[in-house]
Design a protein around this nucleic acid. Structure first.
Length: 217
DNA sequence: CACCAGGCAAGTA
DNA sequence: TACTTGCATGGT
């Protein structure tokens, strides 16, 4: 039986050799990345991209501009990203935290130590573990491993974890097996999403041509 | 037409 | 605690 650590390292090598560097996350600023992290919840990135473009084109992609926007106007602007009423509220919840606790200072917010930042993000209604960790890794650039539906599906389908494994368990598997390196965690998560989009879909997986070959069971 | 996409919280028993 | 459901657009 090969150790988990070796399987995690070997999986990374396989993915990197197959796909090369992914250059994530799409976003010009940490603020843009943070907004994208909320908008992409259970949603295709191309839809999110449209919403971000609208905000950008109308000069609304800033802490001040979004904070000043009425909720229903904000919802209207982000409509293509789906769940727009919900996500508008979630964005304002998040900006509310940054306003209250960090006096609206984004740099201070992103520089906050990883554990405090994660606790603060999880205290916001509408920010769960994946969105929090995406913001911490891709916006604040602290080394936390992001787990998503693709990560769970790929690892369970290939027999590395059980189907019932939860977020924290999967996150620990990666973080106990790898050095705490922001660039590495960035690349690894991006590679898993690349594999998921291309080969390991929810239904009809193209496992025969997958770089990981056949699932073990 | 059915199903999916880089989740999360609230409701039910 | 362990399921289930609502939220919603745009692509395949």
């Amino acid at each position: 039986m090969i150790s988990y650590t070796k399987r995690v390292l070997s999986l990374y090598k396989t993915l990197f050799d197959a796909f090369g560097p992914q250059r994530w996350w799409p976003g010009d600023t940490p603020f843009e990345v943070m907004v994208g992290a909320v908008l992409t919840q259970n949603t295709n990135w191309t839809n999110v991209s449209r919403a971000i473009d609208t905000l950008k084109n109308e000069g609304l992609l800033s802490f001040e501009a979004i904070s000043a926007l009425p909720l229903d106007t904000l919802a209207e602007k982000i409509r293509p990203s789906g769940y727009y009423n919900l996500k508008a509220k979630r964005l304002t919840n998040l900006l509310g935290l940054i306003h209250r606790k960090y006096d609206g200072d984004l740099s201070l917010f992103f520089q906050t130590d990883q554990d405090t930042l994660r606790q603060d993000l999880l205290s916001v209604k509408g920010i769960g573990p994946e969105t929090a960790d995406s913001i911490i890794l891709y916006a604040a650039k602290h080394p936390v491993f992001v787990v998503d539906a693709y990560t769970h599906r790929i690892l369970s389908r290939h027999g590395i974890i059980g189907e019932e494994s939860d977020y924290h368990e999967i996150q620990d598997l990666f973080m106990d097996s790898l050095p705490a390196d922001t660039a590495l965690f960035n690349e690894y998560h991006a590679l898993l999403v690349r594999l998921g989009k291309e080969f390991c879909k929810k239904t009809n997986p193209r496992c025969s041509s997958c770089p990981l070959k056949e699932p073990e069971e």
